[in-house]
Amino acid sequence: MAKVLVVTSGKGGVGKTTSSAALGAALAHGGDKVVVIDFDVGLRNLDLVMGAERRVVFDLINVVQGDAKLSQALIRDKRLENLSLLPASQTRDKDALTEEGVARVLNDLRERFDWIICDSPAGIERGATMAMRHADVAVVVTNPEVSSVRDSDRIIGLLDSKTEKAEKGDRIEKHLLLTRYDPARAERGEMLKVDDVLEILSIPLIGIIPESEEVLRASNMGSPVTLNNPSSAPGRAYFDAARRLKGETVELTIPSDKKSLLGKLFGRRAA
């Protein structure tokens, strides 16, 4: 039974695309068939983060409007054969995303994949509402920062009122993914703590992604951080989150990249 998962946040720049790519790759690495869809019409970036920017021919809107077949628009990842990408259109208008069209594409995808990950654009307009509309599960990406927490609260309200599930009276499964977390700063009282954010938003935690250089390094390379450096702190954190999404119980820790003093003195790394 395929699951439609929306990765959303309200605020921009908190890590939706990074998280969509990393979770998608982690789930695919575990053997599931995964497609990641970019809903950010006009400002697509998932293709770039996943290193497929030179292979885009058709896009989501071409498929919605019937100008291309799904199989023509899906881009298969070169590293993981059971990971695919459906890019957003860079030129078309977001109004071209009709509700019926999106529902039809998602239904077709449900037959071919185990996970359909919808990478939402920032904001609360059409692209964002279309990305969440048919979701079974939501991952709300939040930074430990006031504006991000406020926008996440707003998005949680929309998930509970504007999704198909909510309108039918069902509850949409919601999870918090806390990104760019710095445990040391939180400990010093300079950053909201995990428990602060959890208490305010009151949805269950699916993972804590520590602030790390590895995230930028991975996007520079055009590779999800879970593929580019699976043993890095964010890589491990995303793998744990993916296992929790699958229903496994994984102890909640905040992985760290911190090296020992000797490691700092003598450590050298390529890349």
């Binding site: 006031v146 009282g189 909201l192 703590k193």
Partner: peptide, 10 residues
């Protein structure tokens, strides 16, 4: 420390 202020405002 600023985090408690952020928490209360939110």
């Amino acid at each position: 420390t600023s985090a408690p202020v952020a928490r209360e405002r939110l």
